[in-house]
Design a binder for these strands. Structure first.
Lengths: 326, 326
DNA sequence: ATGAAAGCGCTAACAA
DNA sequence: TTGTTAGCGCTTTCAT
């Protein structure tokens, strides 16, 4: 079976295509009688406007693209979930693309967005992204690009980030407050800006307060677990986890040794908030909310789309969520 | 700036639009010289075909839709991740929609898919979905609809599911094997087919082997935690968790009481495989893989799209993954 | 080897 | 209040 078109509706009703079109959009020129007639007809024939044809006339797709490293991730899944809800609320749809942290796939994905003539793009770049030129070309075509979470160094583009320094310092200050003496601090890929910021801020505060700090870098939870296994022997009285990924590794090691939190050792993480709730006692964490980030990114998209030319470079405040692990 | 079109390329090169179009698709009629000329030009001007215009001619969107209850979920995130990868491999894009388990949103989402003229739809229905008519209307328009995970009762539609009976019986049989005497079995929303199947199979095996079984239903992890808190007093020697969501609640309660697995109590779950690895010892679970399910669903989509009219009604085999919790 | 032209479904300016 | 028409970007049949 074929899709119902305006033409079909026009033929059946005996009215012209433009009258049908106008009736369907509730145009004031059209009589109520005609409107209800057409609407009823459209209803029974399951008419749905063809967005492809609409685009050709209006140059507006009502489609957003979003590129993330991976959807299966405690953080990005919540970002995407929020973007999808916001998009739908505003009559937009969401096309998702994963880069797998591969810059070539990233470029292919940008191309796909271009081919689909997305109205806007939300993008989280890979650690290997050296040039954002492909993104900028899209932007030159009046397609707003809102970078989020992992953003380029360059200025002049929209960036919505987690307040890394603030998050790291909130965590560090709690450790100071709790009068810890020796901290094991675990970080992710040292290439990432996010890692650099969190590492720098955290270790600086440790230094200032004369707290001994063992800094290690783990690429995944497994490495985090092994590092914790190893450094637990040095008897730290607190562990700082830069991300949820790290936290899961650390907790494996902690449970393995039957350590009781917070008495045997303190644990604090920077987290999206889900993983910390899986443990008892709940892990004390600094919340970096994917939902909030997505909301802000979406807002930037909409204001940019509405003609505002301000460059958005914003941060999501983080906050301490007290669990029972420190 | 405007997008480069065939017309623009034609004007600049002095060749006709059709020649440009053919050159770009490597048509044998076109001379090599012309081809390389046009390709170069297209490259420097960042020409990307407009899929909306292409659709209008070809009636082919190369866009799939997927509807899930929520993206932030241990299972669906992996399904979507796999669908996205497969789609991209096959030159399709993926539009995601969340229903939030609300049948009205579900219908609105189907409409969106229709409006976007998706080439196919992957759908996981809500517990409240009473009629699949809206889906079938899409199917009548030659848009294959592949139901997955939570599927309608009705026959005659494509369904890819987890082998619920098999998974439940694998779990039950392990409990029998381990000679457990009293089991607390926690299930999700009793309205769901998936719940009914798992519940029926599991309890039946318990009955056959004369194992005492306390069956309870929890709508979320919080309820699961509370139920565990309560029924732990009745001293079960094993807990069966129907899903990851249930498992997280159960483990909160188990950790709260400092119970050691598997000595104090045994725990077994049906799971996608991620959550069980967060604990030490790792939770023994029956794997129901979102990746495998998505792969099979995608395969069904492609064969259906290629003209094969077989109705796919398949199951993903599950398997026991031994952890240290039983 | 290349070009002309029609038409996909829709919107909107202009006409009536 | 309704109709006519042009054109968005592309593919493809039919010329040349």
């Amino acid at each position: 079976m074929n899709n119902t078109t305006l033409k079909k509706l026009s033929e059946i009703s005996g009215l012209s295509i433009s009258t049908v079109s106008r009736a369907l959009k509730n145009h004031p020129d059209i009589s109520e009688k005609t409107k209800s007639l057409i609407n009823e007809l459209a209803d029974t024939l399951d008419y749905e406007p063809n967005v492809n044809a609409v685009y050709l006339r209006t140059k507006h797709t009502r489609l957003f693209g979003v590129i993330v490293p991976s959807i299966s991730n405690f953080f990005y899944d919540s970002v995407i979930a929020t973007l999808e809800v916001e998009s739908r609320k505003n009559n937009y749809s969401l096309m998702i693309l994963q880069s797998g942290d591969d810059p070539n796939i990233e470029i292919a994905n940008i191309k796909l967005c271009h081919q689909n003539r997305v109205s806007g793009l939300f993008a989280c770049i890979t650690p290997e992204t050296k040039s954002i030129e492909p993104f900028q070309k899209l932007a030159e075509l009046d397609v707003p690009v809102i970078f989020f979470d992992k953003v380029p160094d360059s200025s002049g583009c929209h960036k919505i980030c987690v307040a890394d320094e603030q998050a790291a310092s909130l965590a560090a200050n709690l450790i100071v407050e709790k009068q810890k003496k020796k901290v094991l601090a675990l970080f992710e890929n040292s290439k990432l800006l996010i890692t650099k910021k969190r590492h720098e801020t955290f270790t600086e505060i440790m230094r200032t307060h004369g707290i001994e700090c063992i800094s290690e870098f783990a690429l995944n939870h497994y490495e985090a677990e092994k590092l914790t296994d190893a450094f637990l022997n040095e008897k730290p009285d607190a562990i700082f986890c830069m991300t949820d990924e790290i936290l899961t590794g650390v907790m494996k090691s902690v449970q393995k040794r039957h350590l009781q939190l917070p008495d045997d050792i303190g644990v604090i993480a920077i987290s999206n908030g889900f993983i910390p709730t899986l443990y008892y006692p709940q892990i004390t964490y600094i919340e970096t909310s994917g939902e909030k980030l997505a909301e802000l990114a979406f807002q930037s998209m909409m204001t940019t789309l509405s003609g505002n030319t301000t460059i958005h470079d914003e941060m999501i405040d983080s906050r301490l969520v007290a669990g029972g692990s420190m």
